[in-house]
Nucleic acid binder design. Structure first.
Lengths: 156, 156
DNA sequence: GTTAGTGCAAATCTTTTGCACAATG
DNA sequence: CATTGTGCAAAAGATTTGCACTAAC
């Protein structure tokens, strides 16, 4: 989702969800969701998101951002993720699949790439069969070296 | 690893690692590692671990537990894990495989089961081939309903 | 004996909460 | 206009740090 048109389509989908949940559509919430959509590959922390939202909505308070993220997490519009640095980050669930996307965390440059293809269908079937565990969702992160950093290393 | 003999074998392996890294073997560190070994399936937070270690080593301070966990994480003896409740937990890496084990988080009872079989070999190969990402390790958690809770639900 | 490690308390950071006021539906 | 949401400041948690003291090697 790079496209602005798709972003505003997503925005109205999310606004509809908020509305259906009986929540008010405040400018603060709208600005927060917009920023999440715009920077959805950045895996922002609450503080980082707050700083970004503040550019559009200067009077917004940090507590409101936290409260909005809480609401969005409850509605399963965002997921909390953590890449083991102790900071909670917020990641938009994408509309296309019921399952959460995977992450590739590069240990050289620190970037996080997303994989939107579901690679776990077979594995989940095995988990249900062998362990009797009914899988509803998953969190998968690979740690390693991304293509760019590998290329750079080979040049040296 | 339920066996006490195996635990003490692991303990000396870890003590050797600490020693080789030029670190001192203090009673506090030994007690912390012992407790981690004994309760390794519990996925304790630093505070929880502190409370348990205190039983054996009453004068230990919370900061020492944090500092020991820091050291153990650097030596890759433990991994920091997070189950999206915002609390960092510490999980012993098991000696048997280079790859970290998987987790099954039951959304009904909250328990975390471990899978020590590596289910991701094929998936990792695909990630390397299709995305050029060199995988070094992974973190995989399945969210769903465990066998016990499913059984209980069917009785009702 | 040196140097690394510890306990304690204070400092820092992240997140939550209480409350008076504001704005949505 | 009823009710939910907001901003601010204070509170609560989690983690780190400074420092004087202690203990491992």
């Amino acid at each position: 989702m790079i496209d602005l048109a798709l972003q505003s389509e997503e925005l109205s989908r999310i606004e509809k969800q908020l509305h259906q949940a009986g929540l008010k559509l405040t400018p603060q919430r709208r600005a927060t969701v917009k920023t999440l959509l715009r920077l959805h590959e950045s895996h922002l922390s609450a503080e980082e998101l707050f700083a970004k939202v503040k550019e559009a909505e200067p009077d917004i308070g940090l507590a409101t951002v936290y409260r909005t993220l809480e609401v969005l997490a409850e509605l399963r519009i965002v997921n909390r993720v953590s890449f083991e640095d102790g900071i909670t980050r917020y990641d938009l669930r994408t509309e296309d699949s019921g399952h959460f996307h995977h992450h590739l965390l590069c240990q050289v440059c620190g970037r996080v790439e997303e994989i939107h293809e579901d690679l776990l269908l077979d594995v989940e079937q095995k988990v249900e069969q062998d362990y009797g565990f009914k899988v509803a969702d998953h969190r998968l992160t690979f740690l390693g070296i991304c293509a760019k950093c590998r290329a750079k290393q080979h040049l040296q």
